Simulated assay, not measured.
Amino acid sequence: METVYDFTVKMTDGNEKSMREYEGKILLIVNTASKCGFTPQFEGLQKLYEKYKEQGFVVLGFPCDQFKNQEFSNIDETLQFCQKKYGVTFPMFAKIDVNGEKEHPLYTFLKDQKGGILSKNIKWNFTKFLVDRNGKVVERYSPTTKPSKIEEDIVSILK
C-alpha cells in the first residue's frame, strides 16, 4: 500500500467505500469519540471543514471505542449526537479499531507513515493525520492539538 487511496473503509450503513473517492483532496483523518474530554473538538473540525471544503479539504471521522469506551454502541446514536450537538456534516464512518489485532489497515498505514512519540500506537481519541493531495501523510497531531492549531498547515498544502 502506497497511499491512503489504496484502502477501503466501511460507511455507517455497512457498505464499503474506496478512499480513491478522496483522491486529489487534502484530508484530516481523525479517530473520534462522542463521550471524551476532547469531544468539543468536533466544533473546530467542522469549522475547518466548512471553511476549506470548497478548496478540496475534507475531514474524515472514524469513531473508535478503544479508549475507556467513550463511544456510543450504536452508530446512529453517534451520528445523531455529532450532528445535533456540533453540527457535523463532514463524513463519518463505521466504528473501527485504531490499535491492536483488529486495527483497521488504514490506521496501520497512517501510523507507519507518521509514528507517535515513543510508539506508533494511537494513544487516545482525536489523534489527527493530515494527508496531502497525493495521499501521503504529512503530519500527525496529538489529541490535545486543537483543530485551530492545524489550520496553518492545511492552508500551506492547499496552495
Rank of each mutant, 00 (worst) to 15 (best):
V9Q: 05
K10Y: 00
M19W: 07
R20D: 13
I26M: 03
V30P: 06
N31C: 10
N31R: 10
T32W: 04
T32Y: 06
C36A: 01
P40R: 12
Q41R: 09
F42H: 10
E43S: 12
G44E: 00
G44Y: 01
K47F: 04
K51F: 00
K51N: 00
Y52E: 01
Y52S: 02
E54R: 11
V59S: 12
G61N: 05
C64Y: 04
Q66G: 02
F67K: 01
F67A: 01
K68T: 11
N69F: 14
Q70A: 06
F72L: 04
F72M: 04
N74E: 13
N74C: 06
N74M: 03
E77H: 14
C82W: 06
K84A: 09
G87I: 02
T89V: 14
T89E: 14
F90G: 08
F90I: 09
M92R: 07
M92L: 13
F93T: 05
F93P: 04
I96Q: 10
I96R: 10
I96D: 10
P105V: 00
Y107T: 02
Y107E: 03
D112W: 03
K114S: 09
I117S: 14
L118R: 12
I122W: 02
F126T: 00
L130P: 11
D132Q: 01
R133M: 01
G135R: 09
K136S: 12
V138D: 06
S142G: 14
T144E: 13
T144M: 11
E151D: 10
D153M: 06
